[in-house]
Design a binder for these strands. Structure first.
Lengths: 349, 349
DNA sequence: CTGTTAGCGCTTTCAT
DNA sequence: ATGAAAGCGCTAACAG
């Protein structure tokens, strides 16, 4: 079972000896070749080749230089799930772009929701962190914060001393809510989970602290603002909380809403993915969109565009890039990213 | 611009001094707490808290222990694109799963296609590599191979001494080709790019060495096998080579094929994403699927399922997990993953 | 352009 | 249960 690729390490000192030069000449051959004569360089290269030296040991170099050239990415409890979420993937792509441009590697930390997550954050050989949005009570936030390394949290929660970057979710939800709830009498929301327990179910007009995911909380507040702007009672608005950002679950939850005593005539979802499920469920009951039920999504995805979904446009890719830049530049400011409402045929105006 | 999170490092020695114990007692407090008396442990913890010590420095620990607890992932020239590709994302999710379970971090290397890619591979502080399939002539393969660390290449090219894991693309293409080309007289293929230059265009019956991406090459060979099995001349089969795995480009290329003098009556694509574009282009000309044109995809994606696409099912997620396991276990074997043809309504039988 | 010295922060080894 | 010594492999700083 054991392969042959565990050979004893060759050191720079051995290469230098073989080449008949000092260790520093060998070292400079790799780190600053211009400072070494062409002849020495050639001898060092030849010796390295002969001995099978694969270049300076990265850990030793990191220890000496005091930096790793790695940016850490904390995906909260999502982990593998993040790769399934197109928005999270776009965010990672943005980080990857910046890392590639600056010669940094991108270290994704294995968060699982278990108690030892904090240890893993502490054990990460990285120069800074980008944290994908998580819940207020997520212990990895404290672990990141206790490191003396720059970190930026995407979309919250805000942590003292750490950067924060994202859109104004409340304002965006209010804006799109006004569009989707226009001319409606029984608005409803299909929501992301409220907290890390990811309990699903329908609640009525949840209060401003019902959700511990800041993104969910702020969007709910924005939808509430929109409802009130339009003279609608938030307290009677049904919010179908889904455990995951998932088309199938949104479809099932919408089916429930439509079977209720007060079937909604406008549904604001929190992603285009969810909204696609909402559309299916609405049409499955023979209702027309937007005449009978208006629907809005979030994220302006390719799929949503095809479905004619009114949505909130934002660039997770650019936000990922901006988070990475801020983390690598040790810039702990709060930054606000742009967004816009894209009205399409799924809403009444 | 500079934040306050660049404080001087606190060392274990300082913590030990503050706690009034030896450095080793402080060290054991972190690495093997059971070997330290409860009292010493408490004093060390208190001293660490007081001084703001965030735990042993990962680079120093890596240097001393000779391992990093990081698995490197090489995405070839794709990099950011990999996050857009659902199959690559699934593969990464599989790797992430294994890494999380074994307490490893997952380091994605910043490959850009530039000349310094090899340096970056060499500079990676990782214990092993998983390489996402690339072209025969990709220089990062040599860079990975020259490291004395275990590595597994997904789907090829095969590299001496490195592990190899993937499905038998040729056999799978032959099998699905027999289904989609059945009863056809003018089969065609919508293909991934042939080489790293990613030139697009239509070629006729390309030979078995036309492609330097092994996956593309093997699938083309399999489609050729299938054509010949059915008594069709491969030399007259049009292969529309796309630059990217992308719905829009496949749609455009298919449009070209259908406008030609010998419009195809069966089209085998290399992904469900491409096949979705093929379907749109076919239907845009008023043709029926499969009566006028049979279509097949590859990967058994959720979207493909909805479209009723005949396809090849494989689990990239499981393959990612298997690659990670093999790399971490230093197991350089060649392993073959399972696949199956899923016949659906987009083909004639 | 090249070499010497010192030490990055930690853990292995061996002793007590 | 605790500690002293040694050194992982490399490069910053300085001297020649």
């Amino acid at each position: 079972m054991d392969g042959s690729r565990a050979g004893r390490r060759v050191t720079l000192a051995e290469v230098a000896a073989e080449a008949g030069v000092s260790v520093m000449t060998a070292s400079y051959t790799y780190s600053r070749p211009a400072r070494v004569s062409a002849e020495s360089r050639a001898r060092v290269r030849a010796a390295a080749e002969l001995l099978g030296y694969a270049g300076p040991d990265p850990s030793a170099r990191s220890l000496r230089q005091g930096r790793t050239n790695c940016l850490g990415v904390v995906l909260g409890e999502h982990l593998t799930y993040a790769f399934d979420d197109p928005q999270a993937s776009a965010f990672l792509a943005g980080i990857a772009e910046v890392c590639a441009a600056r010669g940094y590697a991108m270290t994704i930390l294995p968060i699982t929701g278990a108690a030892d997550d904090a240890d893993r954050v502490r054990a990460a050989a990285v120069d800074g962190f980008v944290v994908w949005t998580t819940a207020d009570d997520d212990p990895v936030l404290a672990a990141v914060s206790s490191q003396r390394r720059p970190a930026v949290v995407h979309s919250g929660p805000a942590v003292d001393g750490l950067g924060l970057l994202g859109i104004d979710n409340r304002a965006a939800a209010r804006a799109v809510g006004r569009v989707v709830f226009a001319e409606a009498r029984r608005p409803a929301v299909v929501s992301f989970p409220l907290g890390r327990d990811r309990v699903s179910g329908v609640v009525k007009g949840p209060g401003p602290t019902a959700a511990s995911f800041p993104v969910t909380r702020q969007r709910l507040q924005g939808y509430r603002d929109a409802a009130r702007d339009l003279g609608l009672r938030w307290e009677s608005v049904s919010v179908a909380v889904c455990a995951r950002n998932d088309r199938a679950e949104a479809e099932a939850m919408t089916g429930q809403l439509l079977k209720g005593r007060w079937p909604p005539d406008a549904i604001a979802a929190m992603s285009d993915e969810q909204a696609a499920g909402v559309l299916r469920a609405v049409r499955a009951t023979g209702r027309q969109v937007p005449a009978d039920v208006a629907v809005s999504g979030w994220d302006d995805s390719v799929g949503g565009r095809r479905l004619g979904l009114t949505t909130v446009a934002q660039s997770l890719r650019e936000q990922g890039a901006a988070c990475a830049t801020a983390a690598l530049d040790n810039d702990p400011r709060q930054q606000t990213a742009p967004w816009s409402v894209v009205p399409r045929a799924s809403t009444r105006r």
